[in-house]
């Protein structure tokens, strides 16, 4: 019954590859085809790259649920939804690497004191803390411990993290980087569609209940 596309999308090794490869990308301009513009400040390049990948993975994992709500019959969408935890945890791993690189780049933990005073850095710090919390509670057992409803509410913090990351990324450059729009507008549209559908379904259910 499974279509070839669905089979591919269900495969864990493929997802692992797709998640790990972007992390190795900086090796290219640093070692394989050295780019002087990157070598000028290699750590800054690595820092920005890791943050960018973390942000993309966070956005990708957040699109999976809306896609499932909008296309409940689509088998490829359902296949992709199997990887939600893996993608979510890898977003945290990249964020952790990004944060560690930031510490190395700034020369240690000392910088955190001044970080909390600057919205650009504080937003990143809070978003990272949220992802840490969500990764730490990503195990099946945690759902039992917390209870499904509480667990779900806690994991809705991922949306807060995404909003903070959007600001964090926009504030990172001297001028507003247009890529932020490319990354976050599709996510926002998907979320709006999802909310609209959910509201409609609830209303429908309420009407049916009254009729029944």
């Amino acid at each position: 019954m499974n279509s070839p596309l669905e089979k591919i999308l269900r495969a864990k090794p493929l997802v692992y590859t797709l998640i790990i490869l972007p992390g190795l990308w900086p090796l290219w301009p640093l070692f394989v085809a050295p780019n002087p513009s990157v070598l000028a400040d290699p750590l800054k390049y690595v820092l920005h790259h890791l943050g960018f990948v973390a942000c993309l993975l966070l956005v990708i994992v957040l699109t999976l649920t809306p896609l499932r709500v909008i296309f409940p019959q689509s088998r490829p969408v359902l296949a992709l939804n199997r990887h939600r935890r893996l993608v979510g945890v890898s977003a945290f791993v990249y964020a952790a690497l990004h944060f560690s690189t930031h510490l190395l780049y700034e020369g240690g933990f000392r910088v955190l004191a001044s970080d909390v005073k600057k919205p650009f850095l504080l937003t990143g710090l809070i978003a990272f803390t949220i992802l840490l919390l969500l990764a730490a509670t990503s195990f099946n057992r945690m759902v039992q411990i917390l209870g499904a409803k509480r667990w779900k509410n806690l994991h809705r913090l991922a949306y807060v993290a995404a909003a903070l990351v959007a600001y964090h990324q926009a504030a990172a450059r001297k001028l507003f980087p247009v890529q932020v729009l490319w990354i976050f507008i599709p996510l926002a549209l998907l979320e709006l569609a999802r909310i609209a559908i959910t509201v409609q379904q609830k209303r429908h259910a309420a009407t049916s209940a009254r009729m029944g």
């Binding site: 070598l39 000028a40 400040d41 690595v46 700034e106 020369g107 001044s114 650009f120």
Partner: peptide, 22 residues
Amino acid sequence: VDHPRWSQASERVIGGGIFAGR
């Protein structure tokens, strides 16, 4: 006097490599 988004107290030296510090 800091930039509103980052500190101006120290700087990265271009060409210093990954472990040159600030």
